[in-house]
Design a protein around this nucleic acid. Structure first.
Lengths: 256, 256
DNA sequence: TTATCATTGTGTAAGATTAACACAATAAAA
DNA sequence: TTTTATTGTGTTAATCTTACACAATGATAA
């Protein structure tokens, strides 16, 4: 009972994880990144190599659920201080590994707490792709980015969880400029527009988009242009947190 | 184990409710009603008569969480086929009756599963005040409406849960005409406006409000006026579900 | 070296939506 | 019969959104 619960082997975890973690409750994280003009999610490939899943985990008996989600994000990406948005709790009674034909590793307890029905709490996070170090957990052999439109079949209802997360993200995008979290500190207007277009899955007018974004008063244009493209070099911008705080107080509309 | 879990006495429930229900997980419902131009919530008064709480309950081991919430709503109000909106899951590790000085009934097991830490899933519902038959559960001596601004101190974090529910309701109100669920089938424009003003907690222009509502194309004006008021008699309207379905397809904005 | 081309930066006008306000009609009470 | 507060129905001005025009730029092709 005094051992660090995160250093348990998979077998120990199956056998007696429930002495550390709440039974029947899990957390799954949809971690969004943006790279090469594509929206991506972080996925785990299981050691049996046939299954894919979302990064997830469990809640220590005396741990806050947001904290548990933060720990999952940290362990899979190396990132701290990232906003995690709880968006839905999934409680289909068939969320049960047994019912989905998932067996415990050979030699471990087939009556494990992990084989029970689980209610899972969904969180999403927006992270800067380049800052992430994808790190598998002890059940997985790899952790990697997958383009949102090319996500394979995942275990349980994880595909549905991604759908719901994306829906929630789109709604949030209208109320807060969350998209900026996906970009590096310096970005160009075409990059920002491409991000919005990808998340919302619709084309936007370049000129109106720029007007709207600048009118929010939360961007600072740098005296620097992005070189290397085949055409006119666009300016770099940065998201200005101080201006953002000021703008929030005036009750801005971030809808596109 | 074969007994109906909902017919257990409070003592039996404390003692062995966990052979029917998932441990550590509960559901709490914020049931909104509208009466006398006031927004109200349904509360339970405990048998010890010192505490108030939200209507809540637990999830059968093989039951869907939405279904569990539906059952709670039915048992407290007598209403079926009401939309329940899941809005947030509350997972503070101090959500624990012991830590809040709540004791089990005399004679029942002090180590009951019910005294453990619980993660609770919050749902809200909008119901027609006049159709509700407030019904206490076996732990409560009364079930009654309370005006939203006069809610007493509730157990655990139930006051916070109401706050979050109201926040979620306000956001939804901009995306869907949910408010109609709070009114009887026939209502006047001033009544509808008063409802919106109460939920949003702001005054609205009478003429612009009417224009906006009618422009949605989801209301039918009846050839009947509400008599009895001290002044000019306003028309009755009804919410037209067919028109609403048609309007949805065209992607309306319900924002006020 | 110069012309070409796709892209960026900035602006303007029409259309739609929202906000502010005016006045006649009406039902009950004075 | 008059008064009063409220309802029904506009109109106008202000704001926001949408659609589109054109010059400037930086790499590439001629």
């Amino acid at each position: 009972m005094t051992k660090d619960p995160y250093s348990l082997s998979p077998e120990e975890f199956y056998e007696r994880g429930d002495s550390y973690f709440l039974p029947h409750i899990s957390i799954d994280c949809v971690i969004f990144g943006f790279h090469d003009n594509q929206l991506k999610v972080l996925l785990l490939e299981w050691k049996d190599s046939l299954r894919w899943s979302l990064p997830g985990g469990f809640i220590l008996k005396d741990e806050d659920i947001d904290q548990a989600a933060t720990t999952i994000l940290l362990k899979r990406t190396g990132l701290e201080k990232i906003h995690l948005q709880q968006f839905h709790t999934f409680g289909d009674p068939n969320r049960d590994r047994k019912k989905h034909g998932i067996n415990p590793p050979k030699g471990s307890n087939p009556k494990s707490w992990l084989m029970d029905r689980f209610v899972t709490i969904g969180y999403w996070a927006l992270v800067e792709h380049s800052k992430v170090t994808p790190t598998p957990d002890s059940f997985s052999r790899s952790c990697s980015w997958r383009e949102i439109s090319e996500v394979p079949e995942l275990i349980l209802d994880h595909n549905l969880i991604i759908e719901k997360a994306l829906e929630s993200l789109r709604l949030q995008l209208n109320d807060f400029p969350v998209g900026f979290n996906l970009l590096p500190a310096k970005f160009t207007m075409p990059e920002l527009q491409s991000l919005y277009e990808t998340i919302l899955d619709e084309k936007l007018d370049r000129r109106n988009f720029q007007k709207k974004m600048l009118s929010l008063g939360i961007l600072t244009r740098l005296n620097e242009r992005k070189q290397g493209g085949a055409h006119k070099a666009p300016f770099f911008y940065k998201f200005d947190k101080k201006k953002y705080q000021r703008a929030l107080k005036q009750g801005l509309s971030f809808g596109i």
